[in-house]
Each structure stands twice: as structure tokens, then as C-alpha cells.
């Protein structure tokens, strides 16, 4: 265990833990758009910058990304000092020029008092902040269906050759974790479409409810040894099946006892 001071309060943390996970546990709201606990910290968005110092630093301070900074004993942290807020405003100003139409970025920027970017807005902007969370999560899942392609100005997230990605299973995780909700998908009838690829959604054989795609279920069966018939019923019909089984067991035991 290490002991550190955050915004004047002494808190305990586990050795090796990142500052951001400690501030989150303490309920301190630090914007962290490129971070997700499912993947390793990446440090792309720079919004989680905080001010750190130590008693022996003679008043010197440093600014670090909380998502990438392991806690240390005796660390003194300020998460919302005027200098920190100023840094975040600069980052948000840049993000606003990149994604002027993103409601998520607009709202966050407004919270920090930035309503209009000082930079030139990018023409035909999409709302992608290029944090790479989607590609990193897809890689963590083992599918590696999408990646960032191009460099600098032309960098975008896309499937290989910008065609329907052969390795995508349509699990939607990329869309779920995207901080600016740019990744579009559609569920219609028994079809799901994402990244220009269509998938069959498995319908519950009792009630028709759909939960995941056939491709995803097949990947889970083969990689994780989950019997394929587990995916034939939805959660609700599985519960009902269990309650009916329980009824049979109890009535059988009652008959056996009488």
C-alpha cells in the first residue's frame, strides 16, 4: 500500500496502480476519453493531465497523464488546479476544431468554458478523436478487425483496405466503447450491419429475441469451448427453462417421499 494526497485529502492506493484508477475510486471526475479498463493505458487524449509534486521537490511541480502514472508514496496531486484546467482547455480547444459537431466533445468543452474553438475547424469533420480505443478493444478481444490507417492529417480508423473486415464478428464492442459514438451500426430484422458488413443475429428458438450474431457465437464456441446450443435460447427463456426444471425436481422428490 502507498499513501498519497489528492486535492488535500490523504488516500491509500495499491502499489503499481495508476493514478486515474485511484481518482475514479475516490469519485473525482477527471475527463479521460481514451481510457478503458479493458485495455492497457494509452495516453492519447491528454485530457487526464493532473499536477503532481512532492514535499522534497522544493515547490517544483510536474504535469502527467493520470491514466499512465503509477502512484507513489508521498505524491501530492491536484486534479483541478487552475493550471490543470488551463491545460485541459487547450486540449479541448484542439478537439473542438477536430470534431466541431460532436455533442460529447461540445459538452465537455463547455464544462471547461470552451464554447468556440480558437483554431480553424476541420472541413468535413467526422467525430472521431483518433483515440484508438475501438481498435485496441477489438485487438484485446482477439479479432483485430480494424486499425488506424494513414498518418497525420489523413489518419482514420478503418477495416483493412476500407472494405468489409473479414475478421469482424459484429460484436459491437468498438461502437460501445467509442467516446464520441462515431461508429454506426444498424440492427434490422435478423440482420446487423457494422463496418459495411452484414451479420445474422441469432433468434431465440422459443421467443425470437436476439442477443448476439451467429459469427460471434461461433467464435466463442470454438475459442472458448462454449457448447453451441447454449446460444439457442435467450436469457429470459433460459431462466424459464431452469424454473420448470426445478418444478420437476421438486415434484419428483415429493412423489418419492410420499
Amino acid at each position: 500500500m502507498v499513501s498519497l494526497t489528492i486535492n488535500g485529502r490523504v488516500v491509500q492506493a495499491n502499489k503499481g496502480e495508476m493514478l486515474l484508477s485511484v481518482t475514479r475510486r475516490e469519485g473525482i471526475d477527471i475527463p479521460a476519453l481514451c481510457h478503458h479498463d479493458a485495455v492497457e493505458p494509452f495516453g492519447a487524449c491528454r485530457l487526464c493531465m493532473v499536477e503532481i509534486t512532492k514535499a522534497e521537490w522544493d515547490g517544483w511541480t510536474n504535469y502527467v497523464a493520470a491514466c499512465l502514472y503509477p502512484v507513489e508514496d508521498g505524491l501530492i496531486v491536484q486534479t483541478h488546479s487552475s493550471k490543470v484546467n488551463e491545460l485541459r482547455r487547450t486540449v479541448l480547444d484542439l478537439l473542438l476544431a477536430r470534431c466541431p459537431n460532436s455533442p460529447e466533445i461540445r459538452q465537455l468543452a463547455a464544462e471547461y468554458g470552451v464554447t468556440q474553438t480558437a483554431y480553424e475547424e476541420i472541413p468535413d469533420a467526422d467525430n472521431c478523436i483518433l483515440c484508438g480505443l475501438c481498435t485496441r478493444v477489438c485487438e484485446r478481444l482477439g479479432f483485430k478487425a480494424i486499425s488506424t490507417v494513414g498518418r497525420g492529417h489523413d489518419k482514420v480508423v478503418a477495416p483493412p483496405l476500407k472494405e468489409a473486415p473479414p475478421d469482424c464478428v459484429g460484436c459491437l464492442s468498438c461502437a460501445q466503447v467509442c467516446p464520441t459514438n462515431v461508429i454506426q451500426y444498424e440492427d434490422e430484422g435478423n440482420k446487423r450491419t457494422i463496418w459495411n458488413k452484414s451479420f445474422e443475429l441469432i433468434a431465440c428458438k422459443e421467443c425470437g429475441k436476439q442477443t448476439i450474431t451467429r459469427d460471434f457465437a461461433e467464435a466463442l464456441s470454438s475459442q472458448r469451448n462454449i457448447p453451441e446450443d447454449y446460444f439457442e435460447l435467450c436469457d429470459e427463456c433460459h431462466r424459464r427453462e431452469l424454473s420448470v426444471k426445478m418444478g420437476s425436481i421438486v415434484s419428483w422428490s415429493r412423489e418419492a417421499a410420499s
Binding site: R24, D37, A38, L141, A217, F231, D235, R239, L242
Partner: peptide, 22 residues
Amino acid sequence: LDNDKCVKCMACVAACPFGCSL
């Protein structure tokens, strides 16, 4: 289930044979 780690892929909801992941 750790909600900070979950990416909401719904695999567990589909896989639990007793419908207890929701």
C-alpha cells in the same frame, strides 16, 4: 462482473445457460 472493464459485447448474456447475466 467489473463494469469498468466490460465492453458490453453481450457474450455472457448469450452464453449463461441459466440466463443469469443480464
